[in-house]
Design a protein around this nucleic acid. Structure first.
Length: 466
RNA sequence: GCCCCGGUCGUCUAGCGGUCCAGGACGUCAGCCCUUCAAGCUGAAGAUCACGGGUUCGAAUCCCGUCCGGGGCACCA
């Protein structure tokens, strides 16, 4: 959003330097999620650009060169400590209640010996030499001046034994190579920033503007993660969240335009966006508010648009409409949609609300047919008289049905709710359903007559064999 | 344990020394509307601005301490 507002470029870079954690298809999933959300990038692995390649595993030479340069200049050194030794060191530190960290063992060893070991194929990493004392300060656009003591940071790995860089090296090398002006990342990275500064300085690069964004927390106040059932963008999409609603909602987590606006278009958000207005405290993800906002966006859609967006959800196998209806008749759906538009918080909720409009018969429960305060006899009479209306009313539309049934209720001495309730159950098979007469009008005379007839039949049979 | 960053209604937030006995939104509750459920409208409850000290004529706003929460301390990002 900042890039969009300031006329900058948004670059997508794939940081895949951990070979052990490669997940097939993950990159595609991330890119498609971003795209679905409407976050279009100017440069990236799929669209290319002047700073290609955009995948770190394809830029390994750059990192290796940088690491070599740092070793040559004395800013970094080789280390062949085994995982076993590192583990022992850590345990010892723990026992002595010292802060964990590399003890600098190889820093004091003969570089020639280590580089010979590396040439011989030993597992050797490159570590940065962290100053033993003193402090670093940097300015974070959200937090202001931040200060760290070097003493709290130990010599960290920048190049792993498999030849891949760690995040720390890769990010610095690439940010420089790709002319990144603003590093915006989650607050969990703020403690790594001193390392990045150290690498920047020793490579002769200038530090980009640093911006650490507040974390999004789970309802239990811990970091949002898979462990806590964190939802991915994909899941929101599957639940029928509108991308424009999610975008709007997410933009408001940790940022506000400074006035009372909440429901905003993408353009309004981009125009109002300002890094300095980002909050510096973490926020808990409020699903209920997202659902409300999604409902707002759903209600704003034109019936045709909503029908089109609903179609994939209605046609799918799990949680969709009965399979016989596919492909969907969009013209019919467009007429149905206004009946449920106000009732939707997510697109996935539509199917159970309108499934009765897509089947030949609905199953009706006898006890639901007879409303509170109504006897079986008068319910039966009411439905019999209703049949007459359904057969004869002209035209078969919302207004005429409304007028005739209202008159019938009065004539029978029933409350409108009692009569309409019984009809609703007969027609839809549900106690809760969209407005009755609009529904009837769409269903058409024949289907309504058949359903009321069937309900009457059910009552009659129940009466003869009690 | 050490380091860093936070702390305004349950939640998201406005607030940048007086206009704030703190405003908006979600949620909750009540009423209206009403054929059910929603939506909509109206109203209500809900924050001693984490706590304690300063600074100041005046502090949610500035300073210090405490407490609480989170993050980080890997050949993970």
């Amino acid at each position: 959003m900042d890039a969009a507002r300031t006329g900058g470029r948004f670059i997508v870079r794939i940081e895949d330097t951990d070979q052990a954690r490669l997940v097939p298809g993950a990159v595609e999933a991330i890119l498609s999620s971003l795209r679905w959300l409407g976050l279009d990038w100017d440069e990236g692995p799929d669209v290319g650009g002047p700073h290609a390649p955009y995948i770190q595993s394809e830029r390994r030479e750059l990192y290796q060169e940088a690491a070599d340069r740092l070793v040559e200049s004395g800013a970094a050194y080789l280390c062949d400590c085994s995982p076993v030794r590192l583990d022992e060191v850590r345990k010892r530190q723990e026992a002595l209640k010292l802060p964990p960290g590399y003890d600098g063992h190889c820093r004091r060893r003969d570089p020639e010996e280590l580089s010979a070991a590396r040439r011989a194929g030993a597992a050797v990493v490159v570590r940065m030499k962290v100053p033993p004392a003193g402090e670093v300060t940097f300015v974070d656009l959200v937090r202001g001046k931040v200060r760290f003591s070097w003493a709290t940071i130990s010599d960290f790995v920048i190049l792993k034994s498999d030849g891949f860089p760690t995040y720390h090296l890769a990010v610095v090398v690439d940010d420089h190579a790709m002319q990144i002006s603003h590093v915006m990342r989650a607050e969990e990275w703020i403690a790594s920033t001193p390392r990045h500064i150290l690498i920047h300085e020793n490579l002769g690069y200038t530090l980009p503007t640093m911006v650490h964004l507040p974390l999004l927390l789970a309802p239990d106040r811990s970091k949002l993660s898979k462990r806590h059932g964190a939802t991915s963008v994909t899941e929101f999409r599957d639940e029928g969240c509108l991308p424009e609603a999610l975008f709007n909602f997410l933009a408001l987590m940790g940022w506000s335009p400074g006035d009372d606006r909440e429901v905003m278009t993408r353009e309004e958000i981009v125009e109002a966006f300002w890094l300095a207005r980002i909050k510096d405290s973490p926020a808990i993800f409020d699903r209920q508010k997202l659902e409300w906002m999604n409902g707002v966006y759903i209600r704003k859609l034109a019936p045709r648009q909503l029908a089109e967006r609903l179609a994939p959800f209605l046609e799918r196998h799990q949680g969709g409409l009965p399979p016989a209806i596919t492909p969907l008749d969009l013209d019919y759906l467009e007429k149905v949609v206004p009946l449920i538009q106000d009732r939707l918080k997510g697109l996935a909720e539509a199917a159970p609300l309108i499934d009765f409009m897509y089947v030949d018969e609905v199953s009706v429960k006898l006890e639901e047919l007879v409303q509170k305060g109504v006897t079986a006899e008068s319910a039966s009479t009411a439905l019999t008289r209703s049949m007459e209306i359904l057969r004869g009313v002209e035209p078969f539309d919302h207004e005429s049905l409304d007028r005739r049934f209202r008159a019938l209720a009065e004539e029978l001495g029933l409350k409108t709710g009692q009569l309409f309730g019984a009809l609703r159950v007969a027609i839809t098979g549900k106690v809760v359903a969209p407005p009755l007469f609009e529904t009837m009008a769409i269903l058409g005379r024949d289907r309504c007559v058949a359903r009321v007839e069937k309900a009457l039949d059910l009552m009659t049979r129940a009466a003869v064999q009690p």
